[in-house]
């Protein structure tokens, strides 16, 4: 089934003319998006514009029906590839609203995500989450705790491509710094050089990529996203420098931001 795209290994993710319906209603219309290896993109857009839908469709959730277009991952057509196989290809998603699973402990979940190769204790430590290891997964977790739970699972899973759905919303100001640092690490975007490498070298070696939904943009203080996009009514209306986009949205609103984009 795997079809090769025109530029095989170069692009990490290619979304072509994607149309997605949920419950018989088309949510995404003709979305195009390309992400290169090592790049992180930010996704903006008003509530209900289809941001979560785009991530869920890219991950392969069956209730998000792809009715047109295709998705390529490392050149392979994954448009109809099942969820678990996409996860095993190296795509990981942090949920905006994950379910609770009773009787399955956080610790057990981390073992599952890490295929038993990662130590839950030390991972939890890095997110100050040790005391949650023996709780049922997401059971009664607060909004901020949910975010840490999701991130921790991704840390264990260690995908190459991260789909992060509002990782910082509902997180207190102090914890944002912690979460920001962790995401920066997961996406290999540390700017502090180590092992005597220059920033340029680090960037070239960087393999991890991401697509991050954010409303506030706080997360951008911790990692420099390469490109930003605005999703409006199920269409990608604008792409550009993420900080500029955020600034325009903050100052003049989504509509104005898109208009200025179009006129440019």
């Amino acid at each position: 089934m795997a079809r090769k795209s025109n530029q095989p290994e170069k692009k990490l993710l290619v979304i072509e003319d994607l149309r997605v319906s949920v419950e018989e209603k088309e949510i995404l219309h003709h979305v195009d998006l390309e992400i290169n290896p090592g790049e992180t993109h930010a996704l903006f857009g008003p509530n209900g514009s289809g941001k979560t839908t785009l991530l869920m469709a890219a991950m392969g959730f069956p209730s998000y029906h792809i009715t047109g277009g295709r998705i390529l991952f490392r050149g392979e057509d994954i448009t109809y590839l099942p969820l678990d196989q996409r996860a095993n290809l190296g795509i990981g998603l942090s949920f905006q609203r994950p379910p609770t699973i009773k009787g399955v402990k956080m610790r057990q979940m981390l073992e599952i995500c890490g295929k038993g190769e990662k130590d839950p204790e030390s991972m939890a430590q890095s997110l100050d989450f040790e005391e949650f290891l023996d709780r049922d997964l997401n059971d009664g977790f607060s909004g901020g705790e949910i975010k840490r739970s999701e991130l921790l699972q991704l840390m264990a899973q260690d995908p190459d491509f991260f789909l992060l759905d509002e990782p910082e919303s509902g997180v207190d100001l102090e914890s944002i710094a912690l979460i920001g640092k962790v995401i920066e690490g997961l996406l290999q975007r540390e700017t502090i050089t180590h092992e005597g490498k220059s920033r340029k070298e680090l960037k070239r070696e960087r393999r991890k990529s991401g697509l991050i939904i954010t409303h506030t943009g706080y997360i951008l203080d911790y990692l420099d996203a390469d490109i930003g996009h605005v999703l409006m009514d199920g269409e990608l209306a604008c792409s550009g420098n993420p900080r500029e986009i955020l600034k325009t949205i903050k100052e003049r609103g989504y509509d104005e931001c898109v208009r200025c984009c179009v006129n440019r």
Binding site: F61, D84, P98, I101, K102, G103, V104, I112, D136, Q157
Partner: peptide, 19 residues
């Protein structure tokens, strides 16, 4: 949810049943 973390449908189901 479990499948998105890499479990097959059967593995996910049995994990939930065990829970």
């Amino acid at each position: 949810y479990l499948m998105a973390r890499g479990l097959s449908e059967e593995e996910a189901t049995s994990t939930i049943v065990r829970g």
